[in-house]
Design a binder for these strands. Structure first.
Lengths: 355, 355
DNA sequence: CTGAAAGCGCTTACAG
DNA sequence: CTGAAAGCGCTTACAG
């Protein structure tokens, strides 16, 4: 392996100068820089990240923690974050919790992150008080994406889950539905995090706005997955007269609902309307009406906010949005950056059949 | 930050002993090890990966290169690889090419990987001769997943794409179809890689086995995506009389086909049968018949094969399978490890309508 | 079984 | 603008 000394020798300068020239520091003459670059090129030199990081005190790496990379929202967020980091010369260290409590502990509670990364992106990761304490002690910059417990001083990028749920419910109400069921995550579902609470809240609020009492028998908790949607819908149907519409807390659950309804011989939307939240890649294929949330944009924005203080020259990190004004050191909680959602009507929602 | 010296001082031993004790080396007395562990625990000590790697010459990191993390197959592979690596103490460095030629070059052609990782997993990544040369010069252990150009000395884990395509085509033939269209990737589609060639080959072979001539007008090239499937199917329909069945080279294309057929007023499977390859998470939701391939298993197996020579104690890396027998240094090409596929019949395939 | 010392390959004040 | 030297926090022969 060619090392910095080799380049220095070939270019006829010191290693310090090679280091400066290669990193584009301004304190190198143009002629010297040229010679160094030529030498590095000729020797196919690549810096040793470990040596560089040890000496420089920066890791050039960002950690991203997600519950499950294979879920649409998390995969899309990771892709956009990776893209941005890559273009800015950062490595991405992926932690896919996958429901493994042991992994969660190891990642969040130990100092392992501290010496390994410059910054952290936490996506929809449930945090216990001990986790928050540990993360705060790390004293690393971080961002959270999606709702739930935050870390003091860390900005948060998210959508307004209550409003998104209200939009979905309003769409069904406007179509004339009154027997509207809700299927959502349960307290043990780490994929649902606290998201399901906000979405249930929005659902109930919107029903009340129309004077429709919430009916517990139309509200089923399950997992934030296709299977969860199938199970919740089966449970719903087992309880008696089917609702005329189902608002699923996420598209994957909505897809499960469509599956369960089909298996029960019910047609969508003729017998039952279905709407979700997300605008999953496959929502169009299934003709699923939904409230679209910008997943890639949330990832990109989070990455920008994170790298900005690290000296990465990025364009306006808050394009047209309300920036978090709190100072990272202060006690005032940083207000979240809210990205907009939007109703997408497809074929899975229609007026209820006349009696 | 607490460092190794702090632990050594508290435990009353040298840093060398702390290093040995913490890594579980056998040359430490039980009593000493206990004291060291207690001191490390008390100080919340975590080793600095960069210092450790620089001094030890190992990175404890594996790179995985995928075309697009958001595609079902690649996301599933990454998840299973991450899981296995995590359990064995390795970090995962994610490179999502995302069609960026620049990223491809940087990742594959420079020595940047060399000093950064101990091993490489390449998933369905097209390799030019210059890439292969560069990777070979790295002299790092590696594995490729999925078909295509291999790297000399690297094992390959994959399915038999020709056989999978024959299985899909055979299913349609057995149902009585003779006008069977094929939609697949084009040469410029980096997601299709060389996979589409094998699958087309299997399609044609199986037709010929029944004495059915291949009809170029029933064979459309597009992208290995939902949109690609939509476009290919639209093109197919624009060419005249529709086929009675479509064999899509992957489930995402099949889903696009279902969408395009629906938009054209054609019913699946009454008017046109559709089958894919993959067994995508959502295949069940859509009632899509397919030839299932084990994505997570391919990732797991690749990770095992890779870590085995690195001294990770894993169970039999080839459970019941033909192991690659070639030696890594020899010139003899390592035979690929082939994982089985299996036909999954759902609602998207049926006999053609009687005329 | 344990320690002193060298060294991993860089970057960073400090001088000049 | 450039270089000599120290130092980043570990691990690894080498002795004992």
């Amino acid at each position: 392996m060619t090392k910095i000394d080799d380049v220095a020798r070939l270019a006829g300068v010191s290693t310090a100068t090679v280091s400066r020239a290669l990193r584009g520091l301004p304190t190198v003459s143009a002629a010297t820089r040229r010679r160094v670059l030529a030498a590095a090129e000729q020797l196919q030199y690549a810096v040793s990240p470990n040596a560089s990081r040890l000496a420089g005190g920066k890791t050039g790496t960002v950690a991203i923690v997600v519950p499950r990379i294979t879920r649409w929202f998390f995969g899309t967020v990771v892709e956009s974050v990776e893209d941005f980091l890559d273009q800015n010369g950062y490595d991405l260290l992926l932690y896919n919790l996958g429901g493994r409590e042991q992994t969660r502990q190891r990642v969040l509670r130990t100092a392992s992150l501290h010496k390994r990364v410059d910054a952290i992106i936490l996506v929809a990761t449930p945090l216990r008080p001990a986790d928050v304490t540990a993360l705060t002690k790390l004293a690393l910059p971080g961002v959270t994406i999606s709702s739930g417990s935050g870390v003091p001083g860390w900005p948060c990028v998210r959508i307004d889950d209550v409003a998104a749920a209200r939009t979905a419910t309003r769409h069904l109400l406007d179509l004339g539905h009154t027997r509207i069921a809700h299927i959502s995550g349960d307290p043990d579902d780490e994929l649902a995090f606290t998201t399901h609470l906000d979405r249930r809240h929005g659902y109930q609020e919107e029903l009340r706005a129309d004077g429709i009492p919430t009916d517990p028998s139309l509200d089923v908790e399950s997992q934030f997955t296709i299977d969860g949607g199938i199970r919740a819908t089966a449970e719903l149907l087992a309880r008696g007269e089917p609702p005329t519409a189902i608002f699923a807390a996420c598209d994957e659950m909505a897809m499960g609902a469509m599956t369960a309804l089909r298996d029960a011989g019910l047609r969508v939307p003729q017998d039952v309307s279905v709407i979700g939240i997300d605008d999953h890649d496959l929502a169009g294929v299934l003709g699923l009406s939904t409230v679209a949330q910008p997943a890639a944009e949330q990832g990109l924005l989070a990455a920008r906010i994170l790298l900005d203080p690290l000296g990465v020259r990025t364009a306006d990190p808050y394009p047209g949005l309300v920036p978090p004004t709190g100072d990272a050191d202060g006690d005032s909680p940083t207000p979240p950056v809210i990205l907009p959602t939007r109703l997408v009507v497809r074929e899975s929602t229609a007026p209820p059949r006349a009696h």
